[in-house]
Computed example of a mutant assay.
Amino acid sequence: MTALEADDLRTEALFVSDLQISQHPSPELIRAAVDATVDRLGERGCAALVAQEFGEHPDCALGRMRWARGAVRSAYEAA
């Protein structure tokens, strides 16, 4: 898996995790949520839920995806 693919998977996993923007999660909490979500759903499960959310809630999904991408970048730079 390339670094870009890993970043995409982590972003999808954070997007579908239970972690919320309002929690102002630390990098450690973000990494833990990503790991737990990938373990629970797998790569395909994360992608499927992302697609479902964009289909059902496109108005909210874009903002959450932006947050997830930035949060993952910050959390894994700090690691």
Rank of each mutant, 00 (worst) to 15 (best):
V38W: 14
R31L: 09
A48I: 12
L9Y: 03
T37A: 04
A78G: 04
T11Q: 08
V34K: 04
T2A: 12
A71D: 05
L49D: 06
E56S: 11
L4H: 09
A36V: 09
A36P: 05
D18A: 09
A79K: 05
L62E: 15
G55E: 14
C46A: 15
L9V: 07
T11L: 05
A3Y: 09
P27M: 04
D18C: 09
L29S: 09
C60I: 08
D18G: 14
R44S: 12
D7F: 07
R44N: 11
L9N: 08
L14P: 07
P27D: 09
E53S: 06
E77M: 05
G55A: 11
I30W: 10
L9S: 03
A13W: 01
L62Q: 15
D59P: 01
V38R: 11
R73D: 15
E12W: 13
A75L: 02
V50W: 03
A13Q: 02
D18V: 08
R66H: 07
A61C: 01
R40L: 10
R66E: 14
R31H: 11
L49E: 09
F54E: 09
E28C: 00
A78W: 12
A71W: 08
E53T: 12
A78K: 00
L29R: 14
D18L: 04
Q23E: 15
D8Y: 06
R73L: 14
M65T: 01
E28P: 00
D7Q: 08
D59S: 09
E43I: 14
A68D: 07
A3C: 07
L29Q: 12
S26I: 03
S17A: 11
A68T: 05
V16R: 04
Q20V: 08
I30Q: 03
Y76N: 00
V16A: 01
E77R: 06
G42S: 12
R10G: 09
V38T: 15
A32Q: 13
D59L: 11
A75C: 04
V72H: 06
V16P: 11
A51E: 13
G63T: 08
Q23A: 12
G63Q: 05
L62V: 15
R40F: 07
Q20M: 04
L29C: 01
L29V: 11
D18Q: 09
L9C: 02
L49H: 05
S26H: 02
A75S: 07
P27F: 12
P27E: 11
I21W: 08
S74L: 11
S74Q: 10
R69Q: 09
F15A: 08
P58E: 08
G45D: 12
